[in-house]
């Protein structure tokens, strides 16, 4: 059974974090653009970008968590993830978005839009999946 203990927040969403793209270029997390993800995935031999559309957002098991249901890729596979409300996702053409942008900004100093049903997020799958 899964634990509902608090999940450690990844450090790389903090404003100013240095991110290395697949071609070696370094960018701050807040400066990333949709093309950076697309171009990095094009270079990658293992990963490919998929579009994941937000289908539902429900309350999670603990008050700071949400369960987000995505429709992934052309197959529209249904995938659910439980994350903290401040967890940011990158929305195509829009940038960082979370279920609670105020909290994301407060914790990470990362400017965020509100993640909504219908938003299309950048996600990854394995190229070798057949």
């Amino acid at each position: 059974s899964s634990s509902s203990s608090p999940v450690a927040l990844p450090p790389f969403f903090m404003r100013g974090s240095i991110i290395q793209l697949a071609d070696g270029e370094l960018k701050r997390v807040e400066d990333l653009k949709t093309e950076d993800f697309i171009q990095s995935a094009e270079i990658s031999s293992e990963l490919k970008i998929d579009s994941s559309t937000v289908e539902r957002i429900d309350s999670g098991q603990n008050p700071n968590a949400v369960v987000i249901q995505f429709s992934v890729g052309e197959l529209k596979a249904q995938v659910c993830v439980e994350v903290l409300v401040e967890y940011p996702f990158f929305v195509f053409g829009q940038g960082w978005s979370s279920c609670c942008p105020d909290r994301t900004t407060q914790l990470f100093e990362l400017s965020c839009a509100k993640l909504c049903v219908g938003d299309v997020c950048v996600s990854l799958t394995l190229r070798s999946l057949r």
Partner: peptide
């Protein structure tokens, strides 16, 4: 004596959720 450490650099893919679609074949 604390040596100055370089700033951590994170790979781009760590920022992206890995959502493997269910294969329906």
């Amino acid at each position: 004596n604390v040596e100055p450490r370089s700033v951590p650099v994170f790979p781009w893919h760590s920022l992206v959720p890995f959502l493997a679609p269910t294969q329906s074949d």
